[in-house]
Amino acid sequence: MPEPILQTEKLSKRFGAVVASDAVTLDLVAGEIHALIGPNGAGKSTVIKQVAGEIRQDSGSIRFAGRDIGRLDMVARARLGLARTFQVSSIAPEFSALQNVMLAVQSVERKTFRFLKPARSDTSLKEQAMSHLVRLLLDDRAEIRAGDLSHGEKRALEIAIALALRPKAFLLDEPMAGMGPENTAKLIEILDGLRTEAPILLVEHDMDAVFALADRISVIVYGRIIASGTPEQIRANEEVRRAYLGDEGHDGAA
């Protein structure tokens, strides 16, 4: 196996009495989609948030692209090449879809502190941003106010923004959430092509999507990884079946 791009070691996080992450160790290697599944409230998003730097782990370490990033903030991690999307779409609602992507492009170019030249007349900036919208099939929505986009379009826009960061790894938190079957199918196809650009750590509830896309799957329950392996191995795993069945009916644990 090649050297992993992203590696968490015994990541733990408690919120009061609730253990959100319990010694989570997982990695992500080039070219793969590694899916993180588990019941509601199992701590999947908490892992994403810790890797992205939104919340700080209580203990454990995170290595990314050859360095320890466990103490860096969100901005620094993004600049190293971690591109993240959110469970609930997080966009600049008053900007056009294109402007949302332009922000990411200018960040990658490290050219944000330019005060006088109109961004609008910067053709290179616009063209690059547009190319990412094209990939997500959003090019005809480029000038629409992002807040006015449909739910599915907002999800796609977030991925276009992530793509514009030219990342070394994607962290996608339920990209299919709330999408209809047609859009889900389109998105599966897009994500499938994305893995060759950068590996994807994917949190997702849509099991069809997970089993269609994932090279590896880790199952997390009560903040703890109980199984990890290929889709076939996970499908066959007794403990996974039990954990899912056993958890039915009381999913509410936050």
Partner: peptide, 11 residues
């Protein structure tokens, strides 16, 4: 509009 969004793109 959204400071979190800006931080996520590395600004």
């Amino acid at each position: 509009q959204n400071a979190q969004r800006l931080a996520t793109v590395g600004i």
